[in-house]
Design a protein around this nucleic acid. Structure first.
Lengths: 192, 192, 192, 192
DNA sequence: GATGAATGAGGTTTCATTCAT
DNA sequence: CATGAATGAAACCTCATTCAT
C-alpha cells in the first residue's frame, strides 16, 4: 500500500509537476482515499520525501556499484566509467529528474543528496588515499569533495540543460578535469 | 515604492522563508496595503522574480567586473581572483543566498542564473580562444562551460554547506582544478 | 447536503439580494464551511444556477400541467386557466421572483427560461395546428411564439409591478388578447 | 467632460460587457483619471444609469415621435408604424441593447423603462379613450398597459433572440394581436 | 478642477488534514 | 483499517473610492 502511494506520488510528480502535487491528486492516482494517505505518511511532504529519497538512492546505488566494480583500474577509465554510470542513471528517468532537480526546492533533496555525495566521496577519498606517490596533494578528503561535486554538477546540468556538448565530449572533459586536477603538482597559492 | 516592496519582499524571504512568502505579509512588511502591490507587480511571483533577479545580477556584476579587471594576467591568478570575487559576492548575503538557492525551485532561478553563466562563459571562452599555444584542447566553448559550471557549483556549495575546507583551500583547489584541466594535453578518449 | 446548500442559496438570494450573494454567506446560512460548497458545486455561479433552474422548472411544471389538463377544452377557458396557473406559480414565491427576475441579469435566466418557453410554445403550437377551420392564420409556430411571450410577460410584470389591475382583469385581458388575436381574420399587410 | 465619461461608459459596456465595467476601465477609455469620475458622478452605478437612461430615452423619443405623427390615422397603420419605429429604435444599437437588456439586472433599467412605458401608455390610453363606439371595452388604462407591454416585449425579444420570424411577420402579428384585442367584443369572464 | 497613487475590505477558491462511520 | 465528506484557515487578487498634491 505504501508502494501504491509512492508510485502514485511519483507519477503525479512526473505528469503534473510539483505545484500540482496535492494529496487529493495522489490519493486519486493511487486509487485510495485521501484519508488513507495519513495512515502511512504523517504528511504530504513525507510522500515527496520518499519519492525523492528513492530516486537519489537508486542513482547512488548505480554510481557506487560502478565505482566498486572498477576498483582495480584506478585512473582515467575509472573516472570515465563512473561519470558514465552517473549520466546513465540520471538519464533513466529524465522527467522525474526534471521535477526533482528543477521544481523541488533544493532543500528537499538535500538530505538524500548529501548522503549520496558522502557515500561516493568516501569511496573516492579512500581510492585517493590509497594511490601511490604524489605527496598527497590535494588532500584526499578535500579532493574527493571537489571531484564529486564537480562531476555531479556537470552531469546533472548536462542532462538537464542539454547543452551543445555530446555525451562523449562530456565524459572526456570530466576525465580531463579530474585527471588534470589530480596531477596538478603544486599551486601558486596565497590569499590576497 | 517599487523599492519598498522589493525590500520588503527580500526581507520576508530572508526572515520567513519562501513558504511563508505571502502577498499580505509582504504588504505588511512594506507598510503598504495589499492592493498596492498590484499597482507595481502583476503577480506575487513577479516580486520574487525581481528579488531573485537582482540578487544574481549583483553577483554577476561583481564577478564580471573582477574578470574584466584581470584581463592582463591570464592564468592562475585570474582564476583565483575570479573565484574569490564569486565567493565574496555569495558571502555578502548568505541568508538570502540560502533562500534563493535552497528554498526556491531551481526553475525560479533559471532565467537569471543562465544569464549570469552565459555572461561569464562568453568572457571565459574569449580568453581561452585568445590564449597562445596548446592546440586548443579543450575547445573554448566547451571548456568555458565546464569551468564556469564547476566553479559556480563549488563556490555555491562551499558557502551554503560550510564544509571542512578553508576559504584558501577552496580557492587553491579551484585553481588546481581549472589549471590542470586546461593543461591536460590529450585524453584517452573513446566511447564505451 | 446539496439540498442544504441550495436552500441556503435561495434564502440568501431572497433575504440579502443577488449583490450580497457571496460564497461565505451561503456557507454561513447553510451552517457549512466554505470549502464544502466546492465539493458539490464547481463555482459560486453554479449555486445560483441551480436555484434559478429549479425556480423556472417548477413554474414550467405547473403551467405545463395545467395546459395538459385542459387538453379537451380548447378555447378561452384553456387560455384563462393556463394564465391563471402561471400567475399562481409566479405568486408562490414573490420574493424569489423579484430577485430572479429583477436582480439577476436576464442572461442568467436565459437558458432555463428559454426551456420553459419552448416547452409551452410547442404545446401551444400543437393545439393551434390541431384546431379546426380558420385557414391557419396565423401560422401555429409564429402564433405560439407571440402568445407565449405575451402571456409570460404580462403575467410576470403584473406580479412584479403590481399595477392597478385586478387579477381577474388581468386574466380577462389575456383571454381577450389571445382570443382576438387568433380570430383576427386577415391583416392589411405590407412593408412600408 | 460628463460627455466623455458617458461615452466611455457606453463604449466599455458595449465592448467589454457589464461584468468588466470597472471605474478604472471607464476612466481609461475616457482618457481621464479615475478620481475625476467622482467629480461628476457620485458612484459607479450613476454612470451606468446615465448610459441606460439615455438609451431608453432615445428609444422612447423615437416611438413617441412616431406615435404623435400618426395622430390622424388611428387604426392598424398606426399600430404597425409604431411597432416599426420601436423595432427600428432597438435595432439601432443591438450591441448596447444586448448589454442593457441581458447583462444588466432588470432593476437597473426599471426606472427609465417605466418612464418610457408610462409615456407611451398615456398616449395610447388617450387615443383609446378618444376612439368612437365600442362601449369602451377594454378600459383605456388597462388596455394601454396590455398593449404597451405586449408590443415592447415582442419587439425586444425579436431583436434580442432573432427567432425564425421575419420583420414583416412580426409587425403583422403585432397588428393582429392589438387589433383583435381591441375588437374583442365581450369576454366570457368569471373568476374560478 | 484634475490627478492617480494608495487604500483595504472582502471575494472566491484551494487543499492539507481530520474523524465519524 | 479504510473511507471520504467536511473542514477552515489562509492565499491571491480586485476594484470602488479617497485625498494629498
Amino acid at each position: 500500500m505504501v508502494e501504491r502511494i509512492v508510485a502514485a506520488g511519483r507519477s503525479v510528480l512526473v505528469s503534473d509537476g510539483y505545484d500540482a502535487f496535492s494529496t487529493n491528486r495522489v490519493a486519486g492516482a493511487a486509487g485510495v482515499s485521501p484519508g488513507s494517505l495519513y495512515q502511512y505518511f504523517p504528511d504530504k511532504s513525507a510522500i515527496v520525501d520518499v519519492v525523492v529519497d528513492r530516486y537519489w538512492e537508486e542513482v547512488a546505488e548505480q554510481v557506487a556499484a560502478s565505482l566498486a566494480d572498477r576498483i582495480a583500474e584506478f585512473g582515467p577509465a575509472m573516472v570515465r566509467d563512473t561519470a558514465d554510470a552517473l549520466v546513465t542513471a540520471l538519464e533513466a528517468d529524465p522527467a522525474l529528474l526534471r521535477v526533482v532537480a528543477r521544481e523541488l526546492p533544493l532543500s528537499r533533496n538535500h538530505a538524500r543528496l548529501e548522503a549520496l555525495e558522502r557515500r561516493v566521496r568516501d569511496l573516492v577519498a579512500a581510492y585517493l588515499a590509497a594511490r601511490p606517490g604524489t605527496g598527497h596533494r590535494p588532500q584526499p578528503a578535500v579532493a574527493a569533495w571537489v571531484i564529486v561535486l564537480a562531476i555531479e554538477n556537470l552531469a546533472t546540468r548536462w542532462v538537464l540543460d542539454g547543452p551543445a556538448v555530446t555525451r562523449d565530449q562530456l565524459l572526456d572533459e570530466i576525465v580531463a578535469l579530474v585527471g588534470g586536477y589530480l596531477l596538478s603538482a603544486s599551486v601558486t597559492t596565497g590569499s590576497r
